[in-house]
């Protein structure tokens, strides 16, 4: 059913720490590895070794440069996957009922056997979280590794999304946002977690932790090397004068 649930028992999602992410793309690789063999159709690649490779991914890392007014620019690696919005516009536009949001944990999923591949849900998503598989022609999106997090056949420490499990920097955290005592709720409270494009009214569950402020040098002038003002002596002084005379 493509109507959204009024409330969900849990609000499972991710916290992504932009301060910690090093942009290694390991989460993308592990996501693709797990999900190409897991939930739904495989994640295809076309022309992978050719001149125009394309493929479906559930997670992608952009890299931005952010320039404060009074400090040098810095680089921010920016992982982006489905934000499992509370008010998910991708769900309500679906004409077939293939897209749905689960009332038990808030995960947004696609029942691929019902998807007609119209692409309307991808248009409705402001975040670019949904991609059409180029081979299966059904819509693919992050499942929050629904086939890992409840999977009793794998060790307990592996029962979290593949991207979280693999992140070598600890930049990704998985948990229940409806519980104020959960690890993710605490992180959001401590670090001032934010919503992406709040003006779109999607009420995303996933939160982003902004980079911590950079420590600033005590005075602005010490940030750059001092200009050389003293006159050199000896051989260098002679050379300096001789070259000056040459004009």
């Amino acid at each position: 059913m493509t109507s959204l649930p009024q409330t969900t028992d849990k609000a499972l999602g991710l916290v992504i720490d932009l301060d910690t992410c090093v942009g290694c793309h390991a989460c993308i690789i592990n996501c693709k590895e797990w999900n190409t063999g897991g939930y739904g159709a495989p994640l295809a690649d076309l022309d992978p070794y050719g001149t125009e490779p394309v493929g479906s991914f559930l997670n992608r890392i952009h890299t931005f440069e952010v320039s404060p007014d009074n400090a040098p620019a810095s680089i921010v690696h920016f992982p982006k996957s489905c934000l499992h919005c509370a008010d998910a516009p991708c769900v309500t536009v679906c004409p077939t009922g293939a897209s749905y949001k689960r009332s038990e944990d808030g995960i947004v999923l696609v029942d691929e056997s019902m998807c007609i591949g119209c692409g309307l849900c991808a248009w409705a998503c402001p975040y670019g979280a949904r991609e059409m598989d180029p081979v299966e022609n059904v819509m693919k999106k992050c499942t929050l590794c629904v086939d890992r997090i409840y999977n009793e056949n794998i060790p307990e420490e592996d029962r979290q999304p593949a991207c979280v499990r693999t992140c070598p920097a600890g930049a990704r955290h998985f948990g229940d946002f409806s519980d104020p005592a959960s690890n993710v709720s605490k992180l959001v409270a401590e670090r001032g977690g934010i919503d992406l494009m709040p003006e779109m009214g999607t009420a995303p569950v996933n939160k982003y932790l902004p980079p911590r402020p950079k420590t600033k040098p005590e005075s602005a002038s010490s940030a750059t090397a001092e200009a050389v003002t003293e006159k050199p002596g000896g051989f260098l002084g002679w050379l300096d004068q001789a070259l000056e005379k040459l004009g």
Binding site: L18, I28, E52, P53, V54, G55, S56, F57, R60, I61, H62, T63, F64, E65, V66, S67, P68, D69, A71, A73, I75, V76, F78, A122, P126, G128, E131, M132, P134, I194, D195, L196, M197, P198, E199, Y208, P210, P211
Partner: peptide, 24 residues
């Protein structure tokens, strides 16, 4: 607003997630 980095400063794309095109 898309990156949430506006409170720090002006944002510019430095690198796309991939060298080629994608569905989006």
């Amino acid at each position: 607003s898309a990156t949430g980095l506006g409170s720090i400063g002006k944002v510019r794309l430095l690198e796309r997630p991939h060298t080629g095109e994608n569905y989006l």
